[in-house]
Design a protein around this nucleic acid. Sequence first.
DNA 1: TTTAAATCAATTGTGCACAATTAAATTTTG
DNA 2: CAAAATTTAATTGTGCACAATTGATTTAAA
Lengths: 150, 150
Amino acid sequence: MSPKYENLKIKNQICFPLYACSREIIKQYKPFLDEIDLTYTQYLVMMVLWERQALTVKELGNCLYLDSGTLTPLLKKMESKGLLSRKRSEKDERSLIVSVTEAGMQLRERAADIPEKMASCTNLDPQDAAALYRILYQLLDCFTSSEENE
Amino acid sequence: MSPKYENLKIKNQICFPLYACSREIIKQYKPFLDEIDLTYTQYLVMMVLWERQALTVKELGNCLYLDSGTLTPLLKKMESKGLLSRKRSEKDERSLIVSVTEAGMQLRERAADIPEKMASCTNLDPQDAAALYRILYQLLDCFTSSEENE
DNA sequence: TTTAAATCAATTGTGCACAATTAAATTTTG
DNA sequence: CAAAATTTAATTGTGCACAATTGATTTAAA
């Protein structure tokens, strides 16, 4: 029974609040990330490297849903800051292996309290946080599984 | 009892899936938006204009959580495509009024089936969609209300 | 095994986002 | 009223995102 253009109203979109919310939260990160001289995307790369130490650009892209067009210049910048090193794989010269440096690992100490600081920025209760987490990964999953044959 | 760096793991972040999901959904829009020659951000502007016909850059920015640095060049581009017109307010010369044109209104017809096409891209059940919607707007609200005294 | 297809990172070009600054117009204050 | 503060859009500069292409390398097929 909805009027013809009801579905085109902003308030009936699900992607818009997702997009707006994502950007607003990243803005909240900024003052904390400024202290350790990282952008949000660089922070994501460091989080992966802190866990994995070394992986290829391809693997990093799979982790973060980013392609080489985004990662190549980002990683070069981070290499010049001394956070990571880049070298071709000996097993497969097509692949480039990104490895965290000692300085990169040390940055983890200075980042350790960021998640806690960020948590206090929101009024999200544990149930809602869990629901949000589950739904978002379900959505992500349905997009990645639709690419399996590409 | 979590290890020291547990909170820095990608899998324990809530912003990351939000950020990734937002971009993945916008990618799903692309083929549909290409047909009517709009980017996702331009589509958001048009959705506001289809409902409101005319409003200032400031009001548009409040609707979309975007500032003039993003909107000014975007709106100039859309003006050159004939979708909207830009003129200063007579009541207040600081404000610029953005108005949808006839061609802009006509585009609504061609966009009308996009929401339906997009809905079929996801496996989101109605309860989850409603929960996601509620939680995201609650989050957005908590960021905007923290700016009240700026 | 030579050729063809696939994979991977890099490059190119376009389009946002956004912080910070500027400049014009308006409102508020003293 | 006149000066100061505020508001608004535009500008400038930086940093992603991403589609499309390129080029080198590897794998698969004929």
